[in-house]
């Protein structure tokens, strides 16, 4: 593609961007829903759900990857079901890398959004309901606009986490160039062969640039939103 990246390096960068973007966007609706449930509802199993969401944060990534392999692999119960009924295969595919990245990034996504929801005054939501808005409308017109900075922050964190995901990905979907070799996997692979340092170095620079860019972007958006709300 470009002359300063070899095709294999470029493949890894493109795949990582694709995997991370899809992982964040696909998990976002679930993240918002679970964050809302954890922040606003009291139900049996509240603590269990909270623990489950945070599990990937505290488990060794290799363990998470292995558990994914057991559940979503071709022989795994869920994996078989999805394959038979929907033709969705995760094992050793880029979709598997998306799943691994999404699961690993999920706690960060949920945490950021949950904090934002908890910062929204429920009294505002009450006021909206007395003005005729049903629960869903209250969420769409009051809660959601007010938590957008939190959602953006969560998305950026999750994106950065997904870009850097290594342990669970390599355990679950291995390290197949062009299929499942993401940026960290590629860096790892290049470091295993003599003379691979320059390739690894270029990829490291890209990883740093992407992460910093994402961070600045989210800061900028969050600040613009806050300014809008504060008035003028």
């Amino acid at each position: 593609m470009t002359d300063w990246l070899t095709p294999q390096e470029w493949q890894a960068v493109a795949l990582s961007l694709k995997v991370s973007t899809v992982a964040v966007l696909a998990s976002l609706p679930f993240g918002i829903f679970i964050a809302y449930a954890l922040a606003r509802w009291r139900f049996p199993g509240h603590g269990l759900l909270n623990g489950l969401v945070h599990l990937p944060l505290v488990l060794p990534p290799v363990v998470t990857g292995y558990l994914l392999l057991l559940t979503f692999g071709r022989r795994g119960s869920v994996g078989q079901f999805l394959d038979q009924w929907f033709g969705i295969v995760f094992a050793f595919r880029w979709t598997g890398a998306v799943l691994a990245a999404a699961i690993m990034a999920f706690p960060l996504l949920v945490r950021a959004i949950r904090l934002a929801i908890e910062a929204v005054d429920p009294k505002l939501e009450q006021a909206a309901s007395t003005l005729g808005a049903s629960r869903l409308w209250v969420f769409a017109t009051v809660t959601l606009p007010l938590i957008i900075p939190g959602i953006l922050a969560g998305m950026v964190l999750a994106f950065a986490k997904a870009m850097g995901e290594f342990g669970a990905t390599i355990t679950f979907v291995s390290n197949i160039p062009g299929q499942t070799q993401t940026l960290p996997s590629a860096i790892y692979a290049f470091l295993q062969v003599p003379g691979g340092e320059s390739s690894a170095g270029r990829l490291v620079l890209i990883a740093v640039a992407v992460a910093m860019g994402a961070l600045f972007l989210s800061e900028g958006i969050a600040r613009a939103v806050a300014r809008r709300i504060r008035g003028g």
């Binding site: 005054d121 009294k123 505002l124 009450q126 006021a127 909206a128 309901s129 007395t130 003005l131 005729g132 808005a133 049903s134 409308w137 209250v138 009051v142 606009p145 007010l146 809008r228 709300i229 504060r230 008035g231």
Partner: peptide
């Protein structure tokens, strides 16, 4: 009846205007 079906205007002590 749920609050949004009552058609009753409520003015709170702390205005509760939507900041966004």
């Amino acid at each position: 009846l749920a609050p949004h079906r009552r058609g009753i205007g409520y003015v709170f002590q702390d205005a509760r205007l939507f900041p966004h």
